[in-house]
């Protein structure tokens, strides 16, 4: 299954290897890598970018300054927009959360079934190979036209964006359950249901979390694209709205805020992954 070449998924499979390899090293090494990833160095880069931003803002001629707001101007705009951005976040999450969660649930259940049932795998894999690489953004205009109301259309496209990575990774994980785990389950006489729930599912969790991570990134992309098309609130809508009015400080503030929200969500998912996969370390 690892040869399934579906956008965003092949790279995840490689990520898997990259993540799994250090796990076999000593705990001290793993800690050191973890420290580098989330430690002072990354803040150094952030500080560097801020300084660069400020320098460029000084160089930019005065009559173009509205196009390239300085950090201070952007920070003021961000502060002033916080209530509106808060409401926008809420509005976006009403779309994001159900779309993403339903996609994860459906992707995991169907992926595990397809990865452990030969005829289901034969049925779905060729189809997935064709459909999954289609950039889900192409469905946005039609979903908005087809479905009643913007909200249901946006939930549907978020679902489509997140479903395929979760499905394909769950399938790969379920198909990759090692022979020894299968033997062990057979020796215990587990029923198919018990086998799927107590062996295949936990055994596939590494893959499932990779899929969930790609799926979450896709959800945010789909959300903001959908909001550019037809929302009256939300994070993507905020950015689009102030761009239309050439209020670039607010627009940049919106971009930064959206980045922050995405970062927090991805970070939360990573926490959940580490907590769930505690038995791997």
């Amino acid at each position: 299954m690892t040869d399934v070449n579906i956008s965003g998924v092949a790279s995840t499979a490689f990520n898997d290897i990259g993540v799994a390899a250090p796990r076999r090293q000593s705990l001290a090494q793993v800690r050191r890598v973890g420290k580098v990833v989330s430690g002072k160095e990354s803040w150094l880069l952030v500080a560097g970018i801020l300084v660069l931003w400020q320098l460029v803002a000084w160089i930019v001629p005065a009559n173009n300054r509205f196009l390239f707001p300085s950090p201070a101007v952007t920070a003021r705009a961000l502060w002033a927009s916080l209530p509106e951005l808060g409401r926008g976040t809420l509005s976006s999450f009403i779309i994001l959360v159900p779309g993403y969660l339903v996609a994860v649930a459906a992707g995991v259940v169907l992926g595990i079934l397809a990865g452990t049932t030969a005829w289901l795998e034969r049925l779905t894999v060729p189809f997935a190979r064709v459909v999954a690489p289609v950039p889900p953004t192409v469905y946005v205009p039609y979903a908005i036209a087809l479905l009643p109301g913007f909200r249901s259309a946006a939930i549907a496209v978020v679902f489509i964006g997140a479903f395929w990575p979760v499905f394909v990774n769950s399938l790969a994980g379920a198909a990759a359950v090692p022979q020894r785990m299968r033997d062990n389950a057979r020796v215990l006489g587990l029923t198919k249901g018990e086998y799927l729930r107590r062996v295949v599912f936990p055994c596939s969790l590494t893959h499932i979390f990779s899929g969930m991570s790609v799926g979450m990134a896709m959800s945010f992309i789909m959300l903001t694209v959908a909001e550019l098309f037809g929302a009256n609130a939300g994070l993507g809508r905020f950015v689009q709205f102030y761009a239309d009015f050439a209020d670039y400080p607010r627009m940049v503030a919106g971009i930064l805020f959206t980045g922050g929200v995405t970062f927090i969500c991805m970070r939360g998912l990573d926490r959940l992954r580490r907590r769930t996969l505690f038995w791997q370390r």
């Binding site: 020894r180 785990m181 062990n184 006489g189 587990l190 062996v199």
Partner: peptide, 30 residues
């Protein structure tokens, strides 16, 4: 395979995502 013949493998008789008690309880429940 049958429950009338128990097997001990070299190093993978226990599922890593279950505690010792959970591993043994699962076998007993079967």
């Amino acid at each position: 395979p049958g429950l009338d013949r128990g097997i001990v493998f070299q190093d993978y008789s226990l599922f890593p995502w279950m505690s010792l008690a959970e591993n043994v309880t699962l076998a007993i429940s079967k």
